[in-house]
Design a protein around this nucleic acid. Structure first.
Lengths: 363, 363
DNA sequence: CAATATGCCGTGTGCGCACACGGAAAAATT
DNA sequence: AATTTTTCCGTGTGCGCACACGGCATATTG
């Protein structure tokens, strides 16, 4: 690998113009004659010019790049602390590019609160917005606002079909359902029953759930060796322990061979809390996400598998994506799926550490 | 987050000296009186100074940073193509910092060839070395050479106890054995037999194998529900199909209930090739690494689990580690364990894609 | 034809840092 | 006491790029 590193000056000398002219071509600012423009573009290709991003950022960093981050309040649900931390870590990584982040949190069960945060975020005049559009209808306001002000927008966690955004970062919900099916199936025997449990309020964007459910059922339809019967439950009152215990009790009465649960979000621990100790050790539970209460139960064997939704990385990648686009002029894919990590007791440790000492390195 | 971005100048003004003096303190170049040094250090802490890495790299990049990469020849074993690609990707990422890489490959079964590559690498006068020290004795020559020339050294894949290197990047072999035990156990029934298969030449550093074997057996000793009997096989002639088939045939004759295999490296596909089609579908195989022949068998269900050793990331992180240390003056931990990814048919796709569009962005 | 407008291009400065150079003051030597 | 050495510190330049500014042509207008 020879020391290439072609600079603006090299191009300028080759073509016989000044660096300023080459710069105008690079940034498409016009005011360059067609002939010279062509010659410069040709020379850039031929010599393989690539801008020195360090120099570019240096020359640019008088003007800050402010990113508004619209996420649910993490005090309501530990899940949302993860993308927040990822955002903060990424922001620290790119601090020298004068990237600033401002959080606008909202109550995850109140669409109107989301709208308010969106308004505040838009009014703050940001250079870009990173958001988790939990509510479909309200998110359209966000989309419109960004389109009008020509602000790049990145979604994490939840995508909206056909939305004109820079990128969606998250997971393939359908496939995570399939995977959950596969994992649960390991522990079940022929004739067992399994239940998909949705612990969420109805206001939330139901798209996730539908996809996961479809994937989950498709998996069990696809296997022919065993016969597992699938049930579904939607519980909005997951925050009421008494109600939950009562509900659980009834399920086992009605379905004696109910041996497996798939909790479609990060609240698997709420389900465990609703079960008797003996039952906790017997039933097989597959859930999502490495949050504290889940981790404890995973270590105790009361949760068999956790699928890591990589919420931390969603936040991290979200910021990096915007930086790469706006400061580094990189092309960004419309959809960036994160891996579906399978977490068991034996490998959990390495996933937790990973977020501490992540790489870095620009571009 | 206010626009902090403390610069050398800020510190200098605060203390009442010039930027040159502050610079001397930052780089510990001496020639500064004790009193002023203290005041500067104090001011740096108080104001939270952090060097602007873009500017630093700009000011530095007249001198290239050359990294010698000593890895086995990937044409001998597809596994080694992965770290190579990771290295190349990372090198591309940090091209603007004038980082250059040079490969010195060696035959993975010939210690003398390794030594030759080490010599060539050292003679090339590199700024740092990244190596996979497959051979314990010969690696000591590398260690000595680096120590004498004061060249930072990073190991991937294989660690050497007590070696004075900058960092080891790889996996926890013991824990990967434990994990393999857990995964294999999913598919086995009480009374089944399982076999740990080592498909490698004896010259290789045996440390990996020992740790994996210990972890694997520890797992099965730790469970009390089932009784699974463990066997061990070491096969150096894994490249001779006839021999392998013969060997396999004999095993099933002697151990009728041999239903599970743990292949301790990336050559699980070699084992599958040695089995009859009917047997291929019946036995449970756990192996390592997302290389082409394994992936095909995973899709066909002939390999149940692959543990991803993250070979690609080992190369990638290796380069980044050296850049972070030498160009960014970052602290580097002595050991950097990568996650033990559990790969099944349903999530493999996302791990393959990940290497294409990895983040970026430095520090 | 003078005056003005417009298109096209070069020049200069600064971003934050590394480092070579040189100068002033203090210390050591003759 | 005059010199030499040593210690300590400030100054200046350049890394590659972005961009404001101004200058020189040519085109347009009255």
């Amino acid at each position: 690998m020879p020391d290439q590193r072609i600079t603006l000056k090299d191009i300028a000398q080759r073509v016989g113009v000044s660096t300023g002219t080459v710069d105008r071509v690079v940034h498409k600012r016009g005011h360059v004659s067609a002939e010279i423009r062509d010659r410069i573009e040709h020379a850039m290709k031929e010599m393989g010019y690539a801008p020195n991003l360090a120099a570019r950022s240096l020359a640019n960093n008088n003007k800050p790049f402010r990113i508004a981050v619209v996420l649910p309040d993490y005090r309501q649900d530990p899940y949302w602390a993860q993308p927040k931390e990822g955002v903060e870590r990424a922001a620290e990584s790119v601090r020298h590019y004068n990237v600033q982040t401002e959080f606008f949190s909202f109550s995850m069960f109140q669409p109107r609160d989301f709208l308010e945060s969106v308004d505040k975020a838009l009014e703050s005049g940001p250079g870009a917005i990173l958001a988790a559009p939990l509510f479909l209808e309200e998110a359209k306001m966000l989309l419109n606002g960004c389109q009008q002000q020509n602000i790049p927008l990145v979604f994490i966690n939840t995508d909206i079909d056909g939305a004109d955004i820079l990128s969606y970062i998250g997971q393939d919900s359908y496939q995570s359902g399939v995977l959950a099916g596969r994992l649960l199936n390991f522990g079940l025997s022929d004739g067992d029953h399994a239940m998909l449990v949705n612990l969420d309020k109805e206001v939330s964007n139901a798209r996730h759930l539908q996809d996961k459910e479809r994937g989950f059922k498709d998996y069990f339809n696809g296997i022919d060796k065993k016969s597992i019967q699938i049930h579904t439950a939607v519980l909005e009152n997951f925050d009421q322990p008494a109600f939950m215990r009562e509900w659980a009790k009834k399920q086992f009465e009605q379905i004696p061979r109910l041996n497996g649960f798939f909790v479609t979000n990060s609240r698997a621990y709420k389900l465990v809390e609703a079960l008797d100790t003996a039952v906790q050790d017997r039933v097989k539970i597959v859930g999502f996400d490495l949050i504290e209460p889940n981790l404890k139960l995973l270590a105790q064997g009361k949760i068999r598998f956790l699928i890591n939704q990589n919420a931390w990385h969603q936040g991290y990648l979200g910021i990096l994506t915007l930086v790469n686009k706006m400061l580094m002029s990189k092309e960004i894919p419309r959809t960036q799926y994160l891996p579906l990590d399978i977490i068991v007791k034996e490998n959990v440790e390495y996933y937790l550490k990973r977020t501490l000492e992540l790489p870095m390195v620009i571009v």
